[in-house]
Design a protein around this nucleic acid. Sequence first.
DNA 1: TTAATCGTCAACCAGATGGTTGAATATTCT
DNA 2: AGAATATTCAACCATCTGGTTGACGATTAA
Lengths: 116, 116
Amino acid sequence: MWIIISHNMADALDQIFSALADPTRRQILVMLLEDDMAVTDVAEPFEISLAAVSKHLGILASAKLIQQERRGRVKWCKLDPQAMHIAWTWMQGLGQFEHIDLDGLEAFLEETLKKD
Amino acid sequence: MWIIISHNMADALDQIFSALADPTRRQILVMLLEDDMAVTDVAEPFEISLAAVSKHLGILASAKLIQQERRGRVKWCKLDPQAMHIAWTWMQGLGQFEHIDLDGLEAFLEETLKKD
DNA sequence: TTAATCGTCAACCAGATGGTTGAATATTCT
DNA sequence: AGAATATTCAACCATCTGGTTGACGATTAA
């Protein structure tokens, strides 16, 4: 299986990876793994403003990592696995992983944790 | 089933995903899939300056997506699959694309992170 | 109708990012 | 030694990013 990297594909990867590069946005995705949520509820655990969270959600939506649907005055957010799958597949092509390399993960973690 | 995301893990993901967010850097990674390369050779197909490419390589190296080794006046760059694997595993947890033993991963991570 | 809630918009700000150029540092070749 | 090659450094610049605040439109509740 190989990946044709079109212009559009590159654009999509730009958006997906830069969306994933922010820890707040990653945390939002993890929260949405549990359940669909309204914007206000997504914002609740964060210390930043609602407007900032709304922007984060907009970025996630335009990267197609989430879908948003307005019902009444509430805008529901849910995960959309498609975009993540695209990036994941691209990475798989580069890493040629097949299984989870726990030894590598352990080595990484030990290396990183030493620095505390 | 849950994944404990340590402080350092989040930092690592920040670096990895923002490194991957740039199309030049992604293209460099694809080039290195073929073969290890010197900085000048990496820079050759790009229209930007050598210094700019050197910076990109520095970013990839500090995200641990590549390793750099100086031999004489030449600095060789090669892929380092470890970091990509970390991000890939994180994404897999979110996308649930294929079967993966998250319980085992969780146990492993909790065990490792206890050492803090 | 009036008041409260949900979310976005617009303007603004500080800091990060990706690029440039020219000088500097090693290292290797002649 | 002197010249060429490989790479980085430093200063600078324009643009992007993530945050703020206050005002605003839309929807629901009293």
